[in-house]
Amino acid sequence: MSIRHGLLALLSKGPRYGYQLRVEFEASTGATWPLNIGQVYTTLSRMERDGLVAPGGADDQGRAVYTITEAGREELERWFGTPVDQADRPRDELAIKLAMAVATGSVDVHAVVLAQRMAAMGALQKLTRAKRAASGGLAERLVLDSLIFKAEAEQRWLDHCEAVLREKKA
Rank of each mutant, 00 (worst) to 15 (best):
W33C: 10
L52A: 02
G72L: 07
E26D: 10
Q20H: 15
E74N: 11
V84C: 08
T67G: 07
L21W: 07
R16G: 01
G18V: 02
Q39D: 11
A54P: 01
G18H: 06
E77M: 05
T82D: 01
E74R: 15
E24A: 14
A27I: 11
G72M: 09
E75M: 14
E48R: 13
R22C: 06
S45L: 11
L44G: 00
S12F: 00
Q61P: 00
W79A: 14
D60L: 12
N36K: 11
G51T: 07
Q86A: 15
Q39G: 04
E77P: 01
A31E: 05
G30A: 08
L35V: 12
E24Q: 15
K13Q: 10
G56Q: 01
T67D: 07
L44R: 06
T29R: 10
R63D: 00
I37Q: 12
D50C: 02
R78W: 10
A31F: 15
T67V: 14
R78E: 13
R49K: 15
S45V: 08
Y66R: 08
R22S: 00
L10P: 02
E77W: 03
F25A: 04
G38S: 12
G56M: 02
V23G: 01
G81V: 09
M47W: 05
Y66T: 00
L8I: 07
D50Y: 07
G72N: 00
D59F: 07
Q39R: 09
G57S: 06
T82F: 08
F25C: 01
N36D: 15
F25P: 02
W33I: 11
G57C: 05
P55I: 09
A27D: 09
R22Q: 15
R22E: 06
D85T: 14
L76S: 06
R63W: 12
A27C: 09
R16T: 04
G18Q: 06
T82R: 12
E75D: 11
D85Y: 11
L44S: 00
Q61Y: 14
Y19R: 15
L10H: 02
T43C: 13
R63V: 03
E48F: 02
L21I: 14
I68D: 01
